[in-house]
Amino acid sequence: MKKILLGAAALAVMAAPAFAADMPPRPYTKAPAYTAPQVVYNWTGFYVGGHVGGAFAGDNSLQGSDARFLGGVQGGFDYQFAPNWVVGAEAQYSWLPNSNNNGVLFPGGTLVTSNTDQIGSVTGRLGYTWGPALLYAKGGYAWRDSNNLGVSVAGVPAGFTTNGNHKDGYTVGGGLEYMFAPNWSAKAEYQYYNFGDTTFTSGPADIAGRTFRNDEHSAKVGVNYRFGWGGPAAPRY
């Protein structure tokens, strides 16, 4: 029996090379190309933030043409759909600490001063996003503090009346927002505010009957913090 087992083992060893030679070669397969994960940005959710910039009165305004510092806060909600469109709503408040206290001097010697140091808006906005960037337009209701007009001649206050209190108006604008880190975005924005026209219905002769536009142009940069939803989502392969 021992001789038989040894003989069988010897035959197996001798037959192995021949069997291996009869096997077809293993085909070469190239490793699949590496595909980087796709980062998905999600704009849906609430946010709060702050902004700084400048305000510039329009032509024929009692505010004058000099730039005034502007700073404030904003908050809102965005919803992303379809899949690259974003719709939302935003409330914004700005403070203008250096309003036009010097006034406008008219040829007859009448000095008119105005002081608008708070301005706000509640707007809808619609945007298109690609990757971390969002290009948007906005528009809606605008508000400002009471336009504290003052009229004086040679330093002596003078009586006057106007056609109404222009606190309420409208605003339109647009901007670009960019997600630079999870939950954080930065924006640059232009916004125009219009509060109608003010007409002096009575007062010194050089201002009585004159009409002035109440509008503001603003340029702002800001930062938003997005709660939970903002920023890159999980990688998609």
Rank of each mutant, 00 (worst) to 15 (best):
S218R: 03
F77Q: 00
D66E: 14
Y193E: 03
V151E: 05
R144I: 00
G88A: 11
R26N: 10
E177G: 04
V151D: 08
L62N: 09
Q63F: 12
K3S: 13
A158K: 01
K187M: 11
F81G: 09
K138T: 02
V221G: 15
G231A: 09
L11A: 07
H217P: 05
V13R: 05
G209E: 15
A8S: 04
D168H: 14
I207Y: 08
G72R: 11
P157Q: 04
V39C: 02
P24E: 06
M1A: 15
W95Q: 07
A233K: 12
I4M: 11
D59M: 07
G209M: 14
V172C: 10
A16R: 03
G53Y: 00
P17L: 06
Y41F: 08
M14L: 14
S202E: 07
A15C: 01
V151Q: 09
S202C: 07
G140Q: 11
G53A: 02
G228W: 04
S114C: 08
G88M: 05
D117M: 06
W229H: 04
F195T: 01
V52K: 03
G231D: 12
N100Q: 13
V221F: 13
N183V: 11
G139M: 12
F200I: 06
A91G: 15
M1F: 12
F160S: 13
G103M: 01
F200N: 04
R236A: 15
S202R: 06
Y141W: 13
L5K: 09
G174Q: 03
V13W: 02
G76F: 09
P25W: 02
K187S: 12
N163K: 05
D66K: 14
T110M: 07
G76I: 07
D206R: 04
G139H: 13
Q92A: 13
W229R: 02
A8V: 00
G71Q: 11
R26I: 07
L135H: 05
I4L: 14
T29E: 14
A219K: 05
A208H: 02
T113E: 09
P25A: 11
L111F: 10
Q191L: 12
L96N: 13
G159F: 08
H217I: 05
A137W: 00
G159K: 10
G76H: 12
Y190Q: 00
P157I: 01
V40A: 14
F106N: 05
A10Y: 07
G64P: 01
N224H: 05
H217N: 15
R210Q: 15
G53Q: 06
L11F: 05
